[in-house]
Design a protein around this nucleic acid. Structure first.
Lengths: 355, 355
DNA sequence: CTGTTAGCGCATTCAG
DNA sequence: CTGAATGCGCTAACAG
């Protein structure tokens, strides 16, 4: 018995037939024929092996191996109206969101879901394009970063009734559900701590706030806390940068130039904090004696450097895993079993040597 | 004219019909009906607007907007036998592979392709699972990291004739095509440089070599060059670690303990190098005076720290963009227009302050 | 430039 | 526990 793939079944038929398929792929029909069962038995043997007799199961498995059959998920999805694909949209693919993505896949994969990842580069326009592309592919659910989205995205997701979980921040009015921590409160808490340490001229080094609610909220937290303490926090004390190490150094220079008497820098990202810290060291400024430096995120590097960085620990992995769980709960149960709309995973101020 | 979605077309038909679709989605038929044209005109207006009269195009666009139509890529792919999806499998989602992924999407998106990303965690078993899942979804092409894969993956990809481009290393026998640089030669070159600087007791701090041809080749490069120079490089001079900052510190301790007289550390990853560098600083060991430290990858951080890290610059972004181009060339042209089978993008030794 | 016809490969129903 | 019929939403191939 040779391992052909069913071409022989097309015994020179009438002329006007079979335009497509030049005997390309192995189909379920081919497997069924070889196993001597119906296609439905093959279908069942694949996705619910328990509901088919051991005898049939064995023959189907054998036939699948012999033919090298690869199930067609497109056809399956079209027929069943579900893709078992979830999409996640993140601003940037880096170590931080890598942890979140790992949290997501660790939950999705055991349940048989795949993850489609999109990167916006912090642009809501790109987010909209990605959303449309993913909806076109009929993803079963969507994981978004943050709660600021274009009107187009909001409308479309509402109309299509696709389950959505937002992450990495909190808001009273999520599109659907949201899981994260309060970037605003975390920034306030860190600023408060710095003030409590006796620092008075605290500069702020933050991410670019356009299209970024996390960056915006962190900045608000700093400003509000400084204002409450009646300390200066005007525009000249704040520098906005892309989240790369070298920009931390540049931002640090900028602040030092404008305010040589600065006694602390609160960087709303460890990347920026580390960049700033090294610039200080290079210039002979003692950390934390002359200037205290605090970061945000608790990246892997923050504890490896010297002096170790004071920072905010955020639940990167947990936001991913929890978001995925929330989505699955709604996808895998028949009734719309909602959990909480807003899940606060909290944060933690980690005091180390740089402050 | 209200914006219903075509339910009214189902005017109480005979009893035994319409089992599925409870008036769920808007279909192309609905758009066509509303625009007063055939479905084919809608189809063409969407994917090749030039080939349809401006009049029809306008009416279709209007109808699409009014109905909130979202094309169904599943149905489209099933019928056309192409998904316009490419999958990339990387060992880890971090800043390094983030750059490569950015290179890929920057090329893919303008051509209308989406990217499906899989993370193996450095396990070939997981790579195999992911490959099967992606093939099930009928991706048009596959981008793999490195050239070591399970037998299962090799066979399946060969049988299915899916275009594959491997990246991040070189080999004379790619599965299909490969674009990258020689990890082996780069490691030799850096080792040679260190020896040229008068270093004699050079420790090696590398990634775990299991299932990882890049790590293996870097280690081979170090060993071969040391051997040629008749310098020691036995197992006790080598430490293998996961690529995280803190493991760099631990590996550094291990080497120092076993060989207190070590005068250089070649870390086959900037993460490890930076971790090692800070551990030295913490312990009062002068870098580079007492110990020279070299890294690999030219991560963003390597130039931001103090002393700045000597390292190997590798074409992270270019490997992604070039790999995507190579794939597209074969996907978008009718004949199988192969370019070169092996594309060497080279590397560069960046000498800074740590050596 | 436009419309008609016939599947793409599978899962849902329902009957045995 | 198994099988037969039907359509998921779209596009390729042809004809007009």
């Amino acid at each position: 018995m040779s391992i052909s793939n069913g071409d022989d079944a097309e015994k020179a038929e009438g002329p006007i037939r079979q335009r497509r398929r030049a005997g390309e792929q192995v189909r379920m029909t081919d497997v069924a024929a070889r196993a001597g069962v119906s296609v439905m038995s093959v279908s069942r043997a694949i996705r619910d092996p328990e509901r088919v007799s051991p005898k049939i199961r064995a023959r189907v498995e054998k036939a699948m191996r012999e033919t090298g059959y690869v199930p067609n998920a497109l056809a399956s999805s079209l027929a069943s109206q579900r893709t078992r694909i979830v999409a996640a949209i993140v601003p940037f693919i880096n170590a931080s969101f890598g942890d979140t993505i790992r949290g997501i896949t660790d939950v999705l994969h055991p349940s048989g879901y795949e993850l489609l990842i999109g990167e916006t580069g912090h642009s809501m326009q790109v987010e909209e394009r990605l959303t449309n592309a993913f909806l076109s592919h009929r993803v079963d659910g969507l994981l978004l970063t943050g709660h600021s989205h274009t009107q187009g995205v909001r409308e479309r997701l509402r109309n299509l009734k696709v389950p959505v979980v937002e992450t990495w921040n909190l808001t009273d009015e999520p599109m659907d559900q949201i899981v994260g921590f309060s970037n605003y409160e975390a920034a306030r808490a860190m600023t408060r701590y710095l003030i409590g340490q006796g620092r008075r001229h605290i500069g702020y080094l933050g991410g670019i706030t356009k299209d970024n609610d996390r960056a915006t909220d962190r900045e608000r937290g700093y400003i509000d806390e400084m204002t409450v303490a009646d300390l200066p926090c005007d525009r000249s004390l704040r520098s906005y940068r892309k989240l790369e190490f070298r920009h931390g150094g540049e931002g640090c220079e900028e602040l030092l130039e404008r305010h040589p008497d600065i006694d602390a820098i609160f960087a709303a990202s460890d990347m920026l904090a580390v960049g700033a810290l090294f610039r200080c060291i290079k210039r002979g400024i003692a950390v934390p004696d002359d200037i205290a430096i605090a970061g945000f995120d608790d990246s892997d590097i923050s504890s490896a450097i010297h002096p170790a960085l004071t920072t905010v620990r955020v639940p990167r992995y947990e936001m991913g895993s929890r978001a995925a769980q929330m989505l699955l709960q709604r996808l895998d149960t028949d009734e719309e079993t909602y959990g909480q709309k807003v899940v606060d995973l909290g944060f933690e101020i980690l005091i180390r040597d740089s402050t």
